[in-house]
């Protein structure tokens, strides 16, 4: 990778000494000023952002199996207007993580919300020893629990209240709600999580301030890992990862703890 400053210095033409001193002084002043102005950022000067795009193929959300017990007696088209196709709420349902060397200054804290009657996000990936804060923004109580995870037992969280759970044990656990049956979530606790991406409704995701290094990008949808990629981060302002296609058909099956 070339240095533009170096290229500019090599293209300076020959001038007189006074002029040269004057220009040199001026340059030095500018450089000093610039150095002073940019000093606070010098420590993160090597960190870059990594972003990409998630794409769900056609039929990513399959219809329930014929032999699956349907949670209703009736579900019919209204007969007037074509129904909307089923779609994935990527911001709520997916999690994109960067696995690699630990990031300096990373906090072991995460926050999820209960809003609109469900978890947001519903797929959660954290490092061990993370304190998970669960905030209930619904108008009714929730009682979340993670099956098989110590310290995450069922506990009622009233409307507007929050609870915290310290997650220490690496693994993967489904999250259920004793009060609101349809609530589904999945908690992944992975040791080498470097960064957690933010996801836009259109599938764009972004990691900020990623230190240079070799990383693996993983995408989780519930219990499953639906996409993966590698990324080599160097001293650059931004890295754009090729779009990731979500391949695995999501099936309502809990994955074994990893």
């Amino acid at each position: 990778m070339s240095d533009p400053t170096h290229r500019q210095r090599r293209s300076i033409p020959a001038v007189s000494v006074p002029s040269a001193l004057l220009v040199l002084s001026a340059t030095a002043c500018v450089a000093a000023t610039a150095l002073l102005c940019t000093w606070p950022l010098s420590s993160t000067a090597l960190a870059v952002d990594v972003k990409g795009l998630l794409r769900a193929p056609e039929g990513y959300l399959p219809a329930p199996a014929a032999d699956e017990r349907k949670p209703y007696y009736w579900e019919e088209w209204n007969g007037f207007l074509d129904p909307r196709p089923r779609r994935v709420d990527m911001r709520r349902e997916l999690a994109v993580v960067l696995l690699g060397p630990p990031q300096a200054g990373a906090e072991n804290r995460a926050s999820i919300q209960l809003v609109g009657g469900s978890l947001s996000p519903s797929t959660i990936v954290v490092r061990p020893d993370t304190i998970l804060r669960i905030e209930n923004k619904d108008d009714f109580a929730h009682e979340l629990f993670a099956e098989g995870l110590d310290g995450f037992s069922a506990e009622a969280t009233s409307s507007g209240q929050a609870r915290t759970v310290r997650v220490t044990q690496p693994g993967s656990w489904p999250i259920r709600d004793r009060q609101v049956a349809h609530v589904r979530g999945h908690l992944h606790v992975i040791a080498n999580v470097s960064a957690l991406a933010t996801i836009e409704p259109n599938g764009e995701y972004k990691f900020v301030n990623v230190a240079p290094g070799q990383y693996t990008i993983k995408v989780f949808h519930g219990a499953r890992e639906v996409a993966t990629a590698t990324a080599q981060v160097v001293e650059s302002r931004e890295i754009v990862i090729d779009p990731l296609m979500l391949t695995a058909p999501p099936r309502p099956a809990a994955a074994a703890p990893r």
Partner: peptide
Amino acid sequence: AGHVRDDVWAYD
């Protein structure tokens, strides 16, 4: 999404 449907809720 355009469907009529039934369900059973535990609500509040």
